[in-house]
Amino acid sequence: MTDQAYNFAYLDEQTKRMIRRAILKGLAVPGYQVPFASREMPMPYGWGTGGVQVSAATLTPDDTLKVIDQGADDTTNAVSIRKFFERTAGVATTDETDKASVIQTRHRIPEMPLREDQILVYQVPIPEPLRFLEPRETETRKMHSLEEYGLMHVKLYEDVSQHGQIATSYAYPVRVSGRYVMDPSPIPKFDNPKLEMDAIQLFGAGREQRIYAVPPWTQVVSLDFEDYPFEASKADHACDLCGAGDSYLDEVITDDSGNRMFVCSDTDYCRSRRDDGHTGRLAGDAT
């Protein structure tokens, strides 16, 4: 089969319309999980089939696509999804956050603030924030529709009672626009404050067949207790390559004698800082 045999961005137009309708509904009701007829994609569930479908329905031929996986442009998942759209949509791709108009992400929000004309697409494994507390979908839907979110705090209570603090460090539940409690996908809680942004945020869960969205400038509050307030946390270091003290860091074990380095998880952010002449503790040896 030749590449021209694919419709633009792989999915047929009817499917894209269906997904766009779900996206619009999601934007109209921020945080509400809209069911959609998720398609089989040429990649396994859990590899971003939801995000890919949302991206496919969002892309136009003029768009520039960036794909990141845990902040990095060069990991398997990011590379294969980027290649997928290069081949099936022929869109331009980039590593630079600034130049992208659509960014598909797994588990991170780029460090650089996004603009109004950008769209951030999240890959979501489990869209239901109440899933591990209440396994019945019928019941969780009812809880959402009746705004019964006491259970969400039970999880936080358990955290505090066991660890002395809210130990949930990723997929930290948020309340969107004062109404729906939403799973922001497994982003580190460091990224939670960034959920209030200028760009459109779309969330796609392929296996679970749900799409939800946060429109620009929408209030997103991380749940907490009055005496144990939410805290965006990160490793208490600066990046060893670019010296950034404000970015989310990956810890890399460098040898068998316990040496380690901390590097920005957002590779584009780190590279652009190094290009600007910033250096970290190990910048000399590692690059």
Partner: peptide
């Protein structure tokens, strides 16, 4: 809720009606 501690079980109704101080 068998997977939630005794304290969490007792606290659930309190949190459901809006208690937010641990």
């Amino acid at each position: 809720r068998m997977s939630v501690s005794a304290g969490g079980n007792i606290g659930e109704r309190l949190m459901a009606v809006g208690a937010r101080r641990y």
